[in-house]
Amino acid sequence: MPDLAELWSPIRLTLILATVTTLVLLIVATPVAWWLARSGARWKEAVAAVVALPLVLPPTVLGFYLLILLGPDGPGGWIASLGGARSLAFTFTGLVIGSVVYSLPFVVQPIRNAFEAMGERPLEVAATLRAGPWDAFWSVAVPLARRGFLTGAMLGFAHTMGEFGVILMIGGNIPGETRVLSIAIYDYVETLRWTEAHLLAGGMVVFAFAVILAMLVLEKRVGRARP
C-alpha cells in the first residue's frame, strides 16, 4: 500500500503553487491584456509576441535562463540576498516566478480577446454617464470580459498544475517545497514505483478532463447569461 502522506505532499504543493500562480497571473495579465487590447502603439504586437514566447519556446530555454536569472549571477540572487539566501532557485518563490512566465500567454490572450470583443462602445457610454476610467474599468469592462477572465484563470491554473520542464530545471526536487506532482510522477516512474505513478498520473488525467469539461460548460453558461 503506497504511503498516502507521501502522495499527498506533492498534490498539496501543486495546488498551492497553481493557486498562487493564478492569482499573480491575473494581477499581471490584466493590465497587459488591457493595454494590448486598447493601445494604438505600433509596436504593441511586438509586446504581444514577447508575451506569447513561452508558447513556442521549449521549457528548457526558460529553465536555463531562469536558472541564471534567479541565481547569484542574476537579479534573483540579489533579491534572495535581502532575505539572507543566495538564489531564488530551489524555492517556492522561484517556482511561482517561473510558472508566471510560463503560463502568462494562457491568461493574457483570453482576457485580451474579451477586452477587444467588448469594443469601444460600453466605455464611451460609461464615460457619458460620468464614470471615471477606473470606475468604468471595474464596473463595465471587467464584468463584460468575465468570460475571458474565467478562461484565462482556468487555463493558467491547469497549465501550472501540469508544468514540468521548467520546474525540473529550477526546482531541485525538495519535498514539500519544489517537488510538485509532475516531478513526483517522474521520480516514481524512474524508480519503477509504478503503483504510486499510476495513482498520481491517473489523477492528473481525471483532473485535466474535469478542468477542460468545466471550462467548456461554464463558458457556455457565462456566455448565455451575457446581456
Binding site: L67, P72, D73, G77, R86, S87, G172
Partner: peptide
Amino acid sequence: AQTFQFVATGNAR
C-alpha cells in the same frame, strides 16, 4: 550532470 550544473551556476554553493 544537473547536480554539477546547480553548483556551476552558483545556485547551490
